[in-house]
Nucleic acid binder design. Sequence first.
DNA 1: CGGTTGGTTGACAGCTGTCAAGTCCTGTGG
DNA 2: CCACAGGACTTGACAGCTGTCAACCAACCG
Lengths: 230, 230
Amino acid sequence: MSAVPKLLCENCQAASLCLPVGLDQAEFSSLDQLIKRRIQLERGEHLIQQGQAFNSYYAVREGAFKSYTVSRDGREQIWGFYFVGEMFGFVGADTDQFPYSVCALEPSIVCEISFSKLMQLTAKIPALQKQMLKLISHRFITDLSTPRNHSAEKRLASFLLSLSSRFKKSGQSSVDFRLPLTRQEMANYLGITIETTSRLLTRFSSQGVVEVRGKHFIIHDLRYLQKLAC
Amino acid sequence: MSAVPKLLCENCQAASLCLPVGLDQAEFSSLDQLIKRRIQLERGEHLIQQGQAFNSYYAVREGAFKSYTVSRDGREQIWGFYFVGEMFGFVGADTDQFPYSVCALEPSIVCEISFSKLMQLTAKIPALQKQMLKLISHRFITDLSTPRNHSAEKRLASFLLSLSSRFKKSGQSSVDFRLPLTRQEMANYLGITIETTSRLLTRFSSQGVVEVRGKHFIIHDLRYLQKLAC
DNA sequence: CGGTTGGTTGACAGCTGTCAAGTCCTGTGG
DNA sequence: CCACAGGACTTGACAGCTGTCAACCAACCG
């Protein structure tokens, strides 16, 4: 976990997904004031520990993260995954503590955004306030639209589709991507076991729907997944 | 769906849960400017239709609501329930349309809060902005902490506990309440079938954990539910 | 080379969904 | 007040999906 000082919002490839959307040039430039620091993390390194004081939001500049809590009996419960251009940490506002831990899934860089400064700036720039709320509500929809309902197959299909559209947004391929999650992490998030996950991926693979080679996924039949996910 | 003009935030029993928290007297008084109108609805009456333009948040003054979408094959998918003192509609900010429909579960009154006016006022009153974000993130946690994971029994236990603490917040009993949901709605929200729901409630009942008489619930053994929910 | 971790596959039990029947509750109309 | 219809809810039987347990394979690393 080390600081990376020289990056600017202006040069960020994810700017079109992040807070700058809808800002004019002057407003855009003022954004870098918000950034406390840019932080580089290795795979598995923690950015946030559950219960830590909430002072910042975070935006993923490179890499990927997961948020999770650990229940009393020691089981991990994953809340969400965050990829390039996505933000997290909103939920800290509730109790001024982060309700979950967050760690990097691969070598990553995040921008740490001062909550208090963001509040000051949103009060001055309506477009920034609107964009912040858009990001929050978008996140809400992303996390909640993963169906609690339905069979394991439908959940997995739905998850793959969600990933597909998120990767597309960030400029990557929507049908050919590397997913930096273990089967355990996918399964945990979906509320199924790794065995079921593995079996389903094998089935999708043998049906020609999705080509799976380790963490590399190639979706051959988006339609079919959509029909499954309904 | 009819207007109810004479209610004021000052006289609202749910004020301690809603936007006024943290405001001084003058700020508190200014809140009523935000309220476009108070709306009275009958059971089953719709407040929001999916796709409708987003201009407002809503706060439940009396009664209860559910939000839901309808999938292509005609199935209802419930997103959340909203009780006295809880707000909804945040997610409309994402695309300027509401992504779900909302209807009353019993005779209810909501306050319709102008989004644009709220934005203006939060820019002037930092405490209001903070409280708005607190409410949003609290809602986030409420909806996401319902475990996707785990068995039907754990989900139901967890749901009952969540309801218990929400009712307690709004000044009602945390162990003796009327739940204005059909089994179908509970089951749908939890991602299980009505039969399983019914069976589990019967089991809880015969174990003496929860006394169930129709929509009337009396929780006799909170500890046990907590142990189940983990 | 052996240990560790992640992933796949098989066997099997049990939970949950499906289908079906029956009961309870409520509102309506006589 | 009663009879009735319709919906909500409960219960049973059973199949099948999913979790559990276990074995095995592959990749990685010291």
